[in-house]
């Protein structure tokens, strides 16, 4: 059996995805692209976050949030999706839980869209292409707000 001794720690830095109480932040990823879902999931799990759900359109995202609540700490929300777009889904999630932490992740960076999302309660807005550093920085900013 492996014990903690088998994994010498190289540095003592706390992983970004683990909160001050020692528990992993629980994330719901909403995106219609299998590629992006995997990409975001990979970045987050490598930092200790726990992906507790994925959804491939806005409606599914809202439903999953309600199902997971209150055991979800963070949502990443795409905008261009079939059935229901991400801005509408954001609005619905905020109506349901005014403390929800939602971060928009989109290929669109149009000013009015960014403004509208932030007005509706999004904590941050990340424009694709994504890289690890950008995603983690913005997410950490949103969690400390």
């Amino acid at each position: 059996m492996k014990t903690k001794q088998d994994f010498p720690s190289i540095n003592q830095r706390k992983a970004d995805g683990v909160g001050s109480d020692g528990n992993a932040y629980r994330v719901l990823i909403v995106d219609d692209s299998l590629f992006v879902t995997k990409q975001i999931g990979q970045i987050l799990t490598s930092e200790g976050f726990e992906v507790v759900g994925t959804a491939s359109n806005g409606q599914e995202g809202v439903d999953s949030y309600k199902e997971l609540y209150p055991n979800v700490d963070l949502v990443t929300m795409d905008i261009t999706m079939p059935k229901m777009d991400g801005v509408t889904a954001l609005e619905k999630i905020m109506e349901f839980d005014k403390n929800a932490r939602v971060i928009m992740i989109s290929a669109l960076g149009k000013q009015d869209l960014v403004k509208k999302s932030l007005m509706l309660g999004a904590r941050n807005y990340i424009v694709k292409p994504l890289d690890r550093k950008k995603v983690l920085e913005r997410i950490m900013m949103s969690l400390s707000k």
Partner: peptide
């Protein structure tokens, strides 16, 4: 491939 197309078009539309 569709995500690549989405990123390029999204940036152009922006």
């Amino acid at each position: 491939i569709t995500e690549l197309a989405n990123m390029i078009t999204g940036q152009a539309v922006t």
